[in-house]
Every structure is written in structure tokens, then in C-alpha cells.
Simulated assay, not measured.
Amino acid sequence: MSSDQRWKLAGIVSIVSIGGVLITDIVANVVGGYISDQIKTWQVPIQPPAQNQAQANHDASGVDAEAVSSIPAPANETRVTMAAVAPKPQAAPMPPIDLPPESPPEAATAPEPMPLPPEPQPVMLTGTVEQVIDTGTLKIQGETIELAGIKGLGSPYRDQLAKFIEEQGSQIRCEPISERYVCFVSNVDLGLAALTNGAARPAADATPQYRQAADDARRNRRGIFQ
């Protein structure tokens, strides 16, 4: 082969080599771009950038997230603060108060007894002798009375006294002495007359005059002393 032929062959090989390189680059760029586009659709970002996330939130809800975070909380919303849960300070204990010693209770004094009403005093009686119960007991105007200073006796001395009262008109006047009476018929003391005739015995409240009349009846053996 001549030299001219060799140069022509070398030039053809060079052109073919350059053309192959260009075709290879073109194919590589086309295939590489297609593959790159497919790979990008498969990738899922783990944490999108803050600007993209805010833009995505704004695009999804139509409300700006920053604008929402800047809206103040409602006035009536209860907010828990540290003061609400913090323990309240305990009040300081009160200092002890010195109380004066208790005085012993005063002895209860018994109330003064109420004075008793005075006993009703017998009143003077006047009227007619209705009955001689014994020589010391008479019934006058429906009331029974006892003669003072004597112990009365029954029959026959009771009947003798009843006859004497009847002979004097049966009208009698009785004056009270304590709970008993001194009675008079025609100004004659019936108790003294009974003792003088031995028709009664002297009682504990007998006056000296009454006792002397009883002694006189005993000496003269009158009545019960016969």
C-alpha cells in the first residue's frame, strides 16, 4: 500500500472514531436525562425545607401558618400558671397567749327561802250552839271548834254542859286563841265552868286560873273526882 492510501485510511478511521464519540455522547446524554427524570419522581424528602413546608401548608389550607400562630388565644381560655399550682405559703403560727389563771368557781348559794304565807288566824265566832260533841268540843253555825286549856269529857258531863248552855239561851261568843277558842255564854267561861264542876281535865295549854279550878274540883270531889 502506498503512502497516499495509508493517509486516506488513517483519515477515514479518525473521522469514524470522532463520529462514534459524538454519537456515543449524544446517546449517553439522552439516556442519562431520561433515567435522571425517572429517579427524581421516586425520591421522597425526609424533612422538606422550612420555606417549602410553610409554602406547602399555605398551598394546602389556604392559610398562612405563621399568621395562625400569631393569633392570640381567646380571652376566656383558662391558662394554668405556676402561681395556680404552687403551694400557698403557710401562715406563721400564732404566739401563745398567756391567759390569767382561772379562779375557782364560787360556791353556789342556796336561794333564800320564800317566806311562807301567814297561817289564817281564827276569827271571832258568834251564834247559836247547835251541838255539844263533848265538854271541850262544840259545833257553832256549822263549824266545829275546840275549847282552849281543857280536855273534854263525854256523857254524862257533856249532857250537863249542853243543859247549862240551853238554860243561858244557847247564844255563844268565842274568841280565838291560836287554833282554839275561849267561849262565853252569858259572860260565863265554859272551859272554866267545866273544870270547876269536874266535867273536864286541864290541858297542856291551861292557864293558872284553869289549873286552880281543877284543883278545887278535886278537893271538893266534884264530877270525875267523886
Rank of each mutant, 00 (worst) to 15 (best):
R79L: 08
R79N: 02
R79Y: 03
V80N: 02
V80I: 13
M82D: 03
V85L: 06
A86T: 09
K88W: 00
K88A: 13
A91Q: 07
P93R: 03
P93F: 04
M94S: 09
M94P: 04
M94T: 10
P95K: 09
P95L: 11
P96N: 02
P96Y: 05
P96M: 03
D98P: 01
D98Y: 12
D98L: 08
L99G: 01
P101R: 12
E102W: 09
E102L: 11
E102K: 15
E102A: 13
E102C: 03
S103G: 12
P104M: 10
P104C: 04
P104W: 03
P105L: 13
P105R: 15
P105F: 06
P105D: 14
E106Y: 10
E106M: 15
E106A: 14
A107S: 15
A107F: 06
A108E: 14
A108R: 10
A108T: 13
A108I: 14
T109D: 10
T109I: 14
T109C: 09
T109H: 10
A110L: 10
P111Q: 10
P111T: 09
P111R: 08
P111M: 10
P111C: 07
M114L: 15
M114R: 15
P115Q: 13
P115F: 03
P115D: 13
L116Q: 15
L116N: 15
L116W: 08
P117F: 11
P118D: 15
E119I: 15
Q121I: 14
Q121L: 15
P122I: 09
P122Q: 12
P122K: 12
V123A: 13
V123M: 14
V123D: 07
V123L: 14
M124D: 08
M124Q: 11
L125F: 08
L125C: 04
T126N: 08
T126P: 00
G127N: 02
T128K: 03
T128M: 06
E130F: 05
Q131L: 08
D134I: 05
G136L: 07
G136K: 05
G136Q: 04
K139V: 07
K139T: 05
K139C: 02
K139Q: 08
K139A: 05
I140N: 00
I140Y: 00
I140R: 00
G142L: 04
G142P: 00
E143Q: 12
E143K: 07
T144V: 11
T144W: 05
I145C: 02
I145L: 07
I145T: 03
